[in-house]
């Protein structure tokens, strides 16, 4: 890649990672603009990783004020009420993130991303959303897909010790390296809406039970008008009812969505498990670095981790034709 060379300061700071992904990738990173909407345990982990990696800029959006819930698994905000002074989560997190790497521009933006105009969306190469409803995810994802330039879209979710990452790189071409050399590789990603609309009986046989469980919970929250994570064990009967309806409609055996898994997620509610946030934030950081640099095989298109069995699994949920 042409263009200006990295400065001596950049070379010294990024020495160890340039040895992983090369100078060209580092230059691309330094020109990338990332937007994160929603700040929770996973997304702050991701923000840390991407600021350390040396992206061009990071913009964070989350107007919520500090609550005990918002503080869990968040290492960017000191546990000291006197510092908050009515400032939003994004303002407080931004301050710490700037400290991590003076070469990255970290800024905040107010408002709701789903309501933002296209001029705003166009400023970014990567958009990551979390703490938002099914509807919001779909709306933002569609906005990204309508732009002429590619905006990589990621949606992340953490429930109890389980996590989900959704990736939409639209049409993505990269150089795949293997022992025989380099081959050009094309991937075509479905949108979030397209992916979750694929009939369950058409999915590969061994799709993670987490995929189905997340769909049931997400649908429940949406139809009940709940804030994501606003759940409790008293919701179990309704959730089981919804599971039955969905499974019947899609000809899936209910045993694919174990009751104890749903119960575990309900009991945890909005509680986050910090090690899982670190793991998901790490995987997401890696994926975004891959997508920006064009180096390495990006994951397509869902990733699941459950601390209960320790597996980190990639699921390809797309129509063979898409």
């Amino acid at each position: 890649m042409d263009g200006e060379e990295l400065t001596a300061q950049q070379t010294a700071l990024y020495d160890r990672q340039i040895r992983v992904w090369g100078v060209d990738a580092q230059k691309r990173l330094s020109k990338a603009h990332i937007l994160v909407s929603g700040l929770n345990g996973i997304s702050v982990e991701f923000c840390k990783n991407i600021v350390l990696a040396g992206v061009g800029s990071l913009t964070v959006m989350d107007d919520r004020l500090v609550t005990d819930d918002a503080l869990q698994a968040n290492f960017l905000i000191p546990r000291d009420d006197s510092l908050y002074g009515g400032r939003s989560l994004s303002e407080l997190c931004c301050e710490s993130l700037r400290d991590f790497n003076p070469m990255v521009r970290v800024s905040t933006e107010k408002g709701d991303l789903a309501q933002c105009g296209i001029e705003f969306i166009d400023k970014f190469d990567v958009i990551v959303v979390t703490c938002c409803s099914l509807k919001t995810k779909i709306v933002i994802n569609e906005k990204c897909r309508k732009r002429t330039k590619r905006i990589a879209f990621y949606a992340i979710e953490c429930r109890d010790s389980c996590g989900e990452i959704f990736v939409d790189l639209q049409n993505y071409t990269y150089a795949q390296k293997d022992s025989d050399g380099t081959a050009e590789c094309h991937l075509s990603y479905p949108s979030f809406q397209e992916a979750i609309s694929i009939p369950w009986q058409n999915l590969p046989r061994k799709v993670s039970k987490l995929y189905f469980a997340f769909r049931v919970i997400e649908k429940f929250e949406f139809s009940e008008g709940r804030i994501p994570g606003q759940l409790s064990s008293s919701d179990l009967p309704s959730i089981l009812q919804l599971r039955k309806e969905l499974c019947d409609a899609q000809s899936l055996n209910e045993s694919h969505i174990p009751e104890e898994l749903l119960e575990r997620i309900l009991v945890a509610g909005s509680k986050l498990y910090p090690p899982v946030c670190a793991i998901l934030g790490g995987i997401l950081g890696q994926e975004v670095i891959k997508a920006i640099s064009g180096k390495g095989d990006p994951l397509k298109n869902f990733f699941y981790f459950d601390a209960a069995d320790g597996k980190g699994v990639i699921e390809d949920i797309s129509n063979p034709s898409t």
Partner: peptide, 19 residues
Amino acid sequence: NIVHAVATTNAIIAGLIVI
């Protein structure tokens, strides 16, 4: 003998250690 290193892998591994 410099070994290359990135933050993301360390974060993932640290999460697994705690689990």
